[in-house]
Write a protein that binds this DNA or RNA. Structure first.
Lengths: 152, 152
DNA sequence: TACCTACATTGGTCCGACCAACGGTTACGA
DNA sequence: TCGTAACCGTTGGTCGGACCAATGTAGGTA
């Protein structure tokens, strides 16, 4: 976003849910990128590490499906995480098509850092809202997402 | 988004405002792209045409600032719109740095189509919400955006 | 056995946001 | 009035995130 405070887009644009949603998301991704970059990671890294910690070791395929990440992108991200030592990749003895990805101690340490960064972003993002409004916003967005998600 | 309904991301991810916001925005941009593509245009086209209709002829610079579009991107979009005949580009006699962009009759006709498409997207997007909830969502997002916008 | 499916991987595409640099033009201050 | 700063349009990029097609390998099953 480059526009100054004075020069506004047309009213009919400003009033749409889609415009406000897009602007908020833009702001959000910028905050996330900055926050995660400060600890030398990305949103992908966070999501993958968090998934590994919550659900335990998993194949790349399920990591991708759980997070809505394309398998080919999972490859790249796991490459990075493996090289950083945050994750271990080894072939699954029970199914030689799969890799088993396991989070390492270094990985959980990194995850703690990422969570701190993420908390900061949430607070910055929702700063102008009361706690109740923040919950309401999440509730509405969740309803919206769930609805459009169910019907594949 | 590729994940099925069953395989969910970690709870701590799902509960963040940033994740829900990102998912909703993803869904939204997909709907917008489809809706606008159906009338052979893009979101850029809509925003520029709407700005021209609401505020009258303008230079590319103010078009860009009003909509938060980079000047270089404005060039490309105005090229497209001019070639389609939706817009007229002529040098400003009073300031030879500027171009004056004017919407044509064909442009306003196209704008009507785009507005129809956009309305459909809004309805689809906010289908699971009541009218009150929809307004509340827009209100919260607007507050959020305005807040982060004022402080440059 | 033959066939269909799943997995990981390579090598792309597309789009929106953004940046740097430049020539031409105008505004402004010394 | 002259020099410089600021502005405008334009070119030619980068970057990240989402996505897709094709392939080799391995499993499941008729």
């Amino acid at each position: 976003m480059i526009s100054g405070p004075d020069e506004q887009p047309p009213t009919r644009v400003r009033e749409t849910a889609s415009w406000q949603l897009g602007q908020a998301a833009l702001l959000c991704t910028r905050l996330l990128r900055e926050g995660f970059a400060a600890v030398d990671s990305s949103g992908y890294h966070y999501r993958l590490l968090a998934t590994l910690e919550e659900f335990g070791p998993a194949s790349q395929a399920v990591l991708g499906r759980r997070n809505g990440i394309d398998p080919s992108d999972v490859v790249a991200q796991i490459n990075e995480l493996a090289q950083l030592g945050h994750v271990q990749r080894e072939p699954d003895p029970e199914d030689r098509r799969r890799n088993v990805i396991t989070i390492t101690r270094s990985g959980t340490r990194q995850l703690r850092k990422l969570e701190k960064a993420l908390d900061g972003v949430q607070r910055t993002l929702t700063a102008p809202l009361t706690a109740g409004e923040r919950r309401e916003l999440v509730r509405l967005l969740t309803r919206l997402n769930d609805h459009h998600h169910r019907k594949h």
